[in-house]
């Protein structure tokens, strides 16, 4: 308990030169810090173009596979009718990798029980948004995915 505050010096007289020196030192440090921050900033990568992920026969109808496209997992589902669908297989909740459930015919996230339907729409659990949909095209028997 301290009743008084005379422990501190009474309103110190500001010494102009000290303040100027301190100020220019801080300003210089800031100027030097800018390139350092720019240097440390992670690189951005241009969006990837179309990526060939395999031959059509490698995707039997009614099955799903997760393939890596430019460091991101992509869930490729081929319906019984032979139609392809592709989603970025990252749950919109907290980025767990989602999987296709053959029994329940839906896309599920094991982390927090998020559920998406086969259109990628978030239908149950915590996911706030639908999955990101990718375009799938067939070229000369090869399956090609690209950002929509």
């Amino acid at each position: 308990m301290q009743p008084e505050a005379p422990q501190l010096a009474p309103a110190p007289r500001r010494d102009f030169l000290s303040v100027a020196a301190g100020g220019s030192a801080v300003a210089f440090a800031a100027a030097a810090g800018y390139p350092v921050l720019r240097y440390m900033e992670p690189r951005t990568r241009p969006p990837s173009g179309p990526t060939t992920i395999g031959r059509q026969e490698e995707f039997p109808p009614g099955a799903a596979r997760i393939v890596a496209v430019e460091d991101r997992p992509v869930l490729v589902i081929r319906g019984e009718d032979g139609k392809f669908q592709a989603f970025v297989a990252l749950c919109t909740h907290l980025q767990c990798v989602v999987g296709y459930s053959k029994e329940r015919k839906q896309i599920e996230c094991g982390c927090h029980r998020g559920v998406y339907n086969l259109e990628g729409l978030n239908v149950a659990g915590p996911p706030p948004r639908p999955l990101e949909v990718l375009d799938v095209a067939l070229r000369d028997g090869m399956v090609v995915v690209s950002e929509a």
Partner: peptide
């Protein structure tokens, strides 16, 4: 800035 710092010092 460095010049300013040097002069004040």
């Amino acid at each position: 800035l460095a010049f300013l710092l040097f002069s004040t010092l």
